[in-house]
Design a protein around this nucleic acid. Structure first.
Length: 557
RNA sequence: UGGCCUAUGGUGUAACUGGCAACACGUCUGAUUUUGGUUCAGAAGAGUCUAGGUUCGAGCCCUAGUAGGCCAACCA
């Protein structure tokens, strides 16, 4: 242990370690506190792994708590999706709570503050308040209602609760400091009137606590030791602490970290909602969406998300992570787990002229070279096969640059034979329609006695056994690297080629039995997942991510 | 004109609390390869925003500046 290189901890882990060492806490309690007003995205995955991961690492607990204090925007649909997303990511919460569970307690806290002369009912309209609140550089003035008596405040607040007033007519404010340079300390709203049905409490309440008056106390009630949130809540921390101090309740501690920004990606619930509602994508779970539901459907794995988040780390400065890191994490995981199959995206027929018409041979293919336990499968080989159009050139460059097929060039058909191209047909547009080749019987895979060496190996699909499928080729949803930098509408930056539907692809026969959720690698092409839209007579595959492609990179030069 | 936060290769993070700036992604070489994948070997790339200060010694501490972010919702 002593000699082991000390694992570097992020600043939050260091803090926890100190808190545990000093005896400040015997154990830690964290929580993941989403508002059920949208679907979780990759940014939330960072927070989820942070909170649940910390609890795991330090033997603590982590709750799932819904911050449902604004019934206008929230819905059970979101609660359900959030719960299933968190589970999919691999976590189980200790307690499942809702801020709305605490409404009675929160109300009592408010009454307590009023009694202590630290909160008051304000009659000012939003507009009137805007005029006196000042600006960050100009101190605000006090509301004329600030000095109401405790009795009057108590009565008014009770009347607010009883529905005597309309929306916006009155609010409950904390009495703090109208000249504070921190706007959040200038008598912030604690309760507002909303005659709106809540997805959990129904019509029990017509007043709802604000974020600031719910979050900290909820943490405190659950004895959350470390309340982690993103940087923009930093300015709320003095208020978070003020409320806890006034109430003299368990002192949860808020710590902020930088949210995740990803290049070519937008992580804002509001903007994602806009994409969904404007039908720019097919829904929250569109495989191009950075939502957990979307990346799951796209074919990303929970493990790859975990590894990605680990690579990104946690710190207090905000920046933008390259999506390449995510893509690498996905390839890394899929490379280990996924079975290789042959899928030809742009098929062209190839006839082996010296192969007998009706002869078929059964070949053995390795399912996963990275995992011997994945075994092998049989593949049928015959006179007519499909190869990819991209693997043939009528007039290819030197064999040193072009490993694939062309007139008089030799390649190996993987698991089968070495063939030599003897000719091709083309249509009036110069499009190749059929390739002709001869095979060398001495070169059968595994029992090659020819001593031939070829540089190129091609995938192929037997015409007779080919399976058709719809392949959805997904690419980045946006064409702009840093979407935080733009000052026009983010929708102007959508990538028009983010989805290409391919219906001409042919797949090897073994894929006929593919099931929804199956993930495979089409050799030399990429990773694919069988989509939910698949039916008994039509398979639909989503391209999760292409393989790394040094060849294409060379071409670019 | 205010307050708070941040500043380390192209990007994201480290540097055991003051001791030769490390890792990952990306980039580039080369080797292996029946996937132009994987794997393996290697390289380039920052002297830590700037200027002072403390110190034998500063990326770490102090001061000032600069740059960026956040804050003026009855959103979270």
């Amino acid at each position: 242990m002593e000699n082991e290189k000390r694992e570097s901890l992020n600043f939050i882990e260091q803090m926890i370690e100190n808190d545990l060492k000093s005896g400040k806490h015997q154990a830690i309690q964290t929580r993941f506190p989403p508002e059920p007003n949208g679907y979780l995205h990759i940014g939330h995955a960072k927070s989820i792994h942070l909170n649940f991961g910390l609890a795991e690492k330090f033997n603590g607990k982590c709750n799932l708590r819904f911050d449902d204090t604004n019934p206008e925007k929230e819905d059970v649909e979101y609660v359900d999706s959030i719960k299933s997303n968190v589970k999919w990511l691999g976590f189980d919460w200790d307690g499942e709570f809702y801020a709305s569970d605490y409404f009675p307690q929160l109300y009592a806290f408010a009454v307590q503050l009023i009694k202590d002369g630290k909160a008051y009912v304000d009659d000012l309209s939003k507009e009137e308040w805007n005029e006196i609140k000042g600006t960050p550089t100009v101190p605000g003035k006090e509301s004329p209602f600030r000095s109401r008596s405790v009795e009057e405040n108590l009565q008014l607040f009770a009347e607010m609760k009883d529905g005597k007033y309309q929306n916006g007519e009155k609010v409950l404010r904390a009495k703090i400091d109208m000249s504070s340079p921190n706007m959040h300390m200038r008598d912030p709203v604690l309760y507002r009137i909303k005659h709106v049905e809540h997805h959990r409490t129904g019509n029990d309440w017509c007043i709802y606590p604000s974020y600031d008056f719910a979050h900290g106390q909820s943490d405190s009630i659950e004895h959350v030791t470390h309340s982690l949130c993103t940087l923009e809540f930093e300015v709320h921390r003095p208020l978070y602490e003020w409320i806890i101090e006034q109430l003299e309740i368990f002192p949860s501690k808020q710590t902020e970290f930088a949210r995740l920004n990803l290049s070519y990606t937008i992580v804002s619930k509001r903007k994602l909602l806009e994409l969904v509602e404007g039908n720019y994508v097919a829904g929250w779970d569109d495989p191009r969406m950075p939502t957990i539901s979307g990346i799951k459907r796209r074919g990303f794995t929970p493990e790859s998300i975990k590894n990605f988040v680990k690579k990104v780390g946690v710190a207090r400065r905000d920046g933008i992570t390259d999506v390449a890191v995510l893509e690498h994490a996905v390839r890394e995981d899929l490379n280990k787990k996924t079975n290789r199959v042959f899928g030809i995206l742009d098929p062209v027929k190839l006839v082996i002229t010296n192969w007998p018409e009706d002869k078929e041979e059964t070949l053995t293919a390795v399912n996963n070279p990275e995992d011997e336990s994945a075994g092998t499968r049989d593949m049928m080989f015959g006179r007519e096969i499909y190869v990819d159009r991209a693997d043939f050139m009528k007039d290819p460059p030197s064999p040193r640059k072009w490993f694939r097929l062309g007139p008089d060039r030799e390649v190996r058909l993987k698991y089968a034979y070495i063939i030599k191209c003897t000719g091709f047909d083309e249509d009036e547009n110069g499009e190749v329609t059929t390739i002709y080749a001869e095979y060398d019987p001495e070169t059968r895979s595994g029992q090659d006695t020819s001593g031939k060496k070829v540089k190129g190996t091609l995938g192929w699909v037997s015409v007779k056994h080919a399976v058709n499928a719809e392949i959805r080729l997904y690419d980045r949803l946006f064409k702009t690297e840093n979407l935080n930098d733009i000052d026009d509408d983010f929708k102007n930056h959508l990538n028009p080629d983010s989805l290409e539907v391919n219906t001409k692809a042919v797949l090897e026969g073994s894929l006929a039995s593919a099931k929804i959720g199956d993930t495979v690698q089409f050799e030399r092409v990429g990773y694919f997942r069988v989509d939910e839209d698949s039916t008994d007579d039509k398979l639909v595959f989503n391209r999760t991510i292409t393989l790394r492609d040094n060849w294409e990179k060379q071409q670019g030069k």
